[in-house]
């Protein structure tokens, strides 16, 4: 018999309606396993930050339960909050404080005994060691983002929430962040991140959750999601333009480009037969020749856009 692993984070029927009547979370249910990276995708105002804030205790949910490592976030808030690290979306820092002091503050605030060695390790891991005596106001946006991550890691959390961690940072820093996230995962930290950057989810997440208008539309293993919902296409650059698609090819899902020189065939990559071989045979029979052939895989972004449009 397989042992059932208790999720590190369990959200059940979570609802939040703000004072102005706006329902930001609608009956959210989600379970996250220890050590996984889950990316929450959603357009602006979808409820991603509200969901994170409700779990961390910044927003008060109207109903529902959330447990972290088996502890209820309301009843056992000391336990749950000491397990959680939060990197907020906004670059909120104490301008006149030094990098070192702000980490020491965070560690103490979360109930951990001072540990200079750990603070040093975190600062070095985030390439902040040489900035440790700098005041936060002197740092660039990217560096401040790193400091916020360092603050969240200062108390050695088992669950880390990253609310749009790479918003407004350059490509190289973004890739550094992905590396850091991967290293944290390797250390056993469970990571829940929200992002607008689909490639971020594609690059680092194990599972992807899509939120729209306060509802979780789906939560799926990233690879399975892409193979399930991702269309695969073959694009053929024709030698001669084609006036119309011949009747002999009507059985295929074909599209002719506007300038009539490209045919695109969409197929199910998980199907028993993709139909590519017979298509190529039928093209030859119809005297249609091509000079080049490309296959195209739907990106997570395409999937995300489709899902949000469908749910809207």
């Amino acid at each position: 018999m397989n042992a059932v692993t208790e999720p590190i984070l369990s959200i059940q029927n979570l609802n939040k309606t703000f004072a102005d009547g706006f329902q930001a979370l609608k009956n959210i249910n989600l379970e996250i396993q220890k050590g996984e990276i889950i990316a929450l995708l959603g357009p602006n105002g979808a409820g991603k930050t509200t969901l994170i804030s409700a779990i961390c205790g910044i927003v008060q949910a109207n109903s529902g339960t959330v447990t972290v490592a088996g502890y209820d976030i309301a009843r056992d808030y000391r336990k749950t909050r000491s397990i959680i690290g939060l990197v907020p979306q906004e670059l909120s820092t104490d301008s006149f404080e030094t990098v070192w002091n702000t980490l020491v503050f965070s560690r103490g605030l979360f109930g951990k005994k001072a540990n200079s060695a750990h603070i040093e390790k975190v600062l070095k891991a985030l390439s902040l060691w040489d900035k440790k005596d700098n005041m936060l106001m002197t740092l660039s946006g990217g560096m401040k983002r790193r400091v916020l991550i360092a603050k969240a890691l200062s108390h050695e959390p088992a669950v880390l929430f990253l609310d749009e961690p790479t918003a407004g940072v350059d490509v190289s820093l973004r890739k550094d962040m992905w590396k850091i996230v991967q290293e944290l995962k390797n250390d056993g930290v469970t990571i829940i991140l929200t992002t607008h950057y689909i490639e971020e989810a594609e690059e680092i997440a194990d599972r992807v959750g899509v939120i729209n208008a306060g509802e979780i539309i789906l939560v799926e293993d990233k690879t399975e999601l892409m193979s399930k919902l991702g269309k695969k296409q073959v694009s053929l650059d024709l030698c001669d333009p084609l006036a119309t698609i011949p009747k002999s090819l009507a059985g295929y899902s074909l599209e002719l480009s506007e300038n009539k020189d490209q045919l695109t065939y969409t197929f199910d990559s998980l199907g028993d037969r993709t139909g590519i071989t017979s298509l190529l045979d039928d093209l030859k029979a119809a005297d249609i020749y091509f000079r080049d052939l490309n296959t195209i895989q739907s990106s997570l972004e395409d999937i995300f856009v489709n899902l949000v449009e469908e749910s809207s």
Partner: peptide, 14 residues
């Protein structure tokens, strides 16, 4: 005002 209160609100403190 600057938004750093999130840390106190999310900390295990009474």
């Amino acid at each position: 005002f600057v938004g750093t209160v999130y840390e106190v609100l999310s900390a295990p403190v009474s």
